[in-house]
Design a protein around this nucleic acid. Structure first.
Length: 187
DNA sequence: CCCTGATTCGC
DNA sequence: GCGAATCAGG
């Protein structure tokens, strides 16, 4: 398939409406992949989309230096898994499914982070952790699941604490809760 | 594992 | 110009 004016127009429209590249690819007929969409979007120089304002930290140009095209169709080899054992420093700043916000007044500014502080702790906890396994904030380590459970204001508040594997911040169960799309539907 | 956009570079 | 492969991140 080629990029006809119509297809490009639709691409622009959908992209500006905020649809993801894969969604747009699905709309456009012909085996168009999301990569094709993204590539086109870049060529059209319209990757801006509906940016709120500022936050244009575009400092991300890796430049791997290594050749990218293997030429061979499907290489059984997976040159992945590079160096990762030396992990060590476990940066654990953001990405907390539930807000830890104390009652203290932390200046929140007008950041977008706010949305994150809204729906996390819906109703009851979906996973019961035996009291023996519960751990407090101070007991968290690099190998414990850091999924918060309960009301931060309550004395019942605790963290999952089960083993988190491979440098991940959460155990397998909560890793899904954290990353996997919950309502991947819509459209 | 799922997904997102960003980038590179052979074609 | 195109887009698969790859990266980096949630």
């Amino acid at each position: 398939m080629t990029w006809t004016d119509e297809r490009v127009a639709l691409l622009k429209k959908l992209w500006m409406e905020g649809l993801s590249a894969s969604q747009i690819a699905a709309e456009l007929s012909g085996g168009v992949t999301r990569n094709a969409v993204i590539g086109k979007v870049h060529r059209l120089k319209l990757s801006a989309r509906a940016k709120p304002a500022s936050v244009s930290t575009r400092a991300k140009a890796p430049r791997p230096t290594a050749p990218r095209r293997p030429t061979a169709p499907a290489s059984p080899n997976a040159p992945r898994g590079t160096a990762s054992a030396a992990a060590s420093a476990v940066s654990q700043r953001r990405s907390s499914p539930a807000p830890i916000m104390g009652a203290t007044a932390l200046k929140i500014d007008a950041d977008i982070e706010v949305e994150t502080l809204v729906e996390p702790v819906t109703k009851a906890v979906e996973l019961f952790i035996p009291p023996e396994e519960r751990i407090s904030l101070l007991q968290l380590s690099e190998k414990t699941c850091k999924w918060p459970i309960g009301d931060p204001m309550s004395s019942e508040f605790h963290f999952c604490g089960r083993a988190s594997e491979d440098g991940k911040p959460y155990c397998e169960f909560h890793s899904r809760r954290a990353y996997h799309q919950i309502d991947r539907k819509k459209r």
